[in-house]
């Protein structure tokens, strides 16, 4: 096997023209339901006062974090991180509980209203495996969205970041080691680039504080008790006439 891959998105907001081709490409590639998108182009609108204005456009999607909180939250393992770095969802194994949706500090996930499963950017792994770029990257007119293997010095992403400062969308509170490298600071109000930690849902709290301890204690007590009883019985010995 070739050298291990380390896939990453590299995004140059300066080159994004907010044409939204990526949004449609993603929509067409994955047929996500209307109103649900796997990727975003954020803008805070024109900043400043006429005529001194500026406007930036920040493309975003799942950051395929190196420390993915969604994977930790998934109760079945349907969400997993591949060795090449992609965080993927095995849709057939997903039960649509939404814990991962809640866990992602970037709100990069949603529950697909048609399939009832968790959904998010998959970096078009099927295209990548076929040697193509993810749909959003392939169609990006401005060249703002790049994707590739950071371990390959010849890849577009490696060349794009060579000698340039890169910014990860992290905060003091949240550092999931996102694998999206921005070529300029992705300062925007949007949560997809300004992560917010989120409270666990009540069921999850119940799970950790009640279900798990109770089950652990019950099983341990039952097993321990029976083991003790068995030892006691060994010491006591058996009386064949006692047998009923």
């Amino acid at each position: 096997m070739a050298e291990k891959k380390r896939y990453a998105f590299v995004i140059d907001p300066a080159r994004c023209i907010d044409c939204r081709a990526c949004l449609v490409a993603c929509r067409a590639e994955w047929n996500t339901p209307a109103g649900q998108t796997r990727i975003w182009v954020h803008s805070d609108g024109p900043q400043g006062v006429f005529p001194n204005l500026s406007q930036t456009f920040i493309p975003a999607q799942c950051h395929h974090c190196e420390d993915p909180w969604c994977v930790d939250a998934c109760p079945t393992g349907a969400t997993f991180k591949r060795e090449d770095g992609l965080v993927l969802i095995d849709e057939e194994a997903c039960i649509g509980c939404g814990l991962c949706v809640n866990a992602c500090p970037y709100q990069a996930r949603f529950r697909n209203t048609v399939t009832g499963k968790a959904d998010k950017c998959s970096a078009c792994f099927h295209r990548v495996e076929a040697g193509e770029m993810p749909a959003c990257v392939a169609t990006c007119i401005g060249g703002a969205r790049l994707f590739g293997d950071l371990n390959d010095p010849e890849s577009t992403v490696s060349r794009a970041i060579a000698g340039r400062a890169v910014y990860r969308p992290i905060t003091n509170e949240v550092n999931t080691q996102p694998m999206t490298l921005y070529l300029s600071s992705p300062a925007a109000a949007a949560v997809q680039v300004s992560p917010q930690p989120r409270e666990p849902v009540p069921a999850e709290t119940f799970w950790h504080t009640v279900a798990l301890p109770v089950v652990k204690a019950a099983v341990a007590l039952a097993f321990g008790g029976q083991a003790l009883a068995f030892i006691f019985q060994l010491f006591k010995g058996e009386n064949e006439y006692e047998e009923a």
Binding site: L212, V214, K216
Partner: peptide, 24 residues
């Protein structure tokens, strides 16, 4: 969705406590 979210720990809790009984 909360129904699914609650179903998981309850499934686990039911199996776990029943299993503790099964041991005995």
């Amino acid at each position: 969705q909360w129904i699914i979210q609650w179903a998981m720990p309850l499934h686990f809790l039911a199996v776990g406590t029943t299993f503790a009984g099964v041991i005995i």
